[in-house]
């Protein structure tokens, strides 16, 4: 399983929990699998097959835009963070 850390506005899909466990071989698959259990999750994050403008996704603390985006491969025990892009500075 993979740990998925969620930004506060997404915790309505996790009963308020800051992180959940999910499975999948890529980030896209993980998001789709969570969406099956919690419909509406995916459309908060993905638009036209891409990560939405104001969201950043990190795989083991690395911005996935430096990797393969939603197609970044994920292994057992990895950590994904889905966070607001407008933060800091």
């Amino acid at each position: 399983m993979v740990t998925v850390r969620l930004a506060t506005p997404l915790r309505k899909f996790s009963d308020g929990k800051p992180e959940i466990q999910a499975s999948g071989k890529t980030i896209r698959e993980i998001i789709e699998n969570i969406d099956k259990a919690k419909p509406g999750f995916k459309e908060r994050i993905i638009e036209n097959g891409e990560i939405k403008q104001f969201i950043n996704i990190f795989h083991n603390n690395e911005d996935v835009r430096f990797k393969k985006g939603l197609d970044t491969e994920v292994a057992e025990d990895d950590v994904i963070s889905i966070l607001p892009a407008v933060s800091g500075g």
Binding site: R5, L6, A7, N61, D63, L83, G89
Partner: peptide, 19 residues
């Protein structure tokens, strides 16, 4: 640092000035 703080701000009830 900023990504870490954004995560910390989701765990602790602190006032992060730029988060």
């Amino acid at each position: 640092v900023n990504r870490l703080c954004t995560e910390i701000a989701g765990y602790y009830n602190w006032g992060f000035v730029n988060i």
